Simulated assay, not measured.
Amino acid sequence: MRILAFILVAASGLSLSAPAAAQQEPPYWASIDEPEARMRTGPSTEYPTMWIYKREKLPVKVLARYKSWRKVEDHEGTQGWMHARLLSASRSGLVLATSGKPVAMRALPDANAKVIWLAEPGVVGSLTLCEKSWCLFDVTGRQGYINITDVWGDEPLK
């Protein structure tokens, strides 16, 4: 009886400690939580690797769930499967290369506010405090407001 009680407690602890990104219902935003993450053609290590991502905090859209696997889409539209332990619920954004020029990070969420940093296309940072068309964007401690049209990782999902 003690062994059964221990197994039940251990099992419930495992489900509580699963990453928040692993417990949400798709679609939702997540980010890669490891220095290296494999995208596979199907939901198992038996499927071949399509891509190896080496960008921790890179945002991805989670489109579907199958057991401990998540079907994800990257900023280029590539879709494949990643194990849930590779993902985090932390919101991040990727600066888009629409103009090919650096994007302004401003002191306030206003197009006329002072530019305090410039973010090159491809830069990844944390997104918080998103309202209207602005988010607070943090790149290794350098913070500023960025227009959401300049980042991938914050569009509303349905």
Rank of each mutant, 00 (worst) to 15 (best):
G77E: 03
P48Q: 10
Q143E: 05
E120R: 09
L127T: 03
V124D: 03
E155I: 03
E46M: 07
S133P: 01
E73M: 13
A21M: 06
S12N: 02
L14I: 06
G13N: 05
I32H: 14
F6W: 10
S99A: 09
R55G: 04
T78V: 11
V123W: 02
G93C: 09
L63E: 13
Q24G: 06
T45K: 14
A104Y: 11
M105W: 10
G93A: 11
T140W: 09
A18N: 05
A104T: 09
A18Q: 06
A84C: 06
G42R: 04
Q143K: 08
T45S: 14
H83S: 09
T45P: 10
Y28F: 15
T98M: 14
I146S: 00
K114S: 15
L4K: 11
H75D: 15
W51P: 02
R70H: 02
V60A: 03
M39P: 06
W81L: 05
T98R: 14
W81Q: 09
T128M: 05
G153V: 00
A84G: 06
T128Q: 06
S44A: 14
K67S: 09
T78W: 07
C135G: 03
A10I: 10
P102E: 08
T78R: 12
N112S: 15
K54Q: 15
L129Q: 15
A10L: 11
S88Y: 12
P102C: 04
A64I: 06
V9W: 11
V9P: 03
G122S: 10
W152N: 01
G122Y: 08
V123C: 01
S12Q: 06
G13A: 00
D154Q: 04
P48H: 09
G122P: 09
L14W: 07
V72D: 00
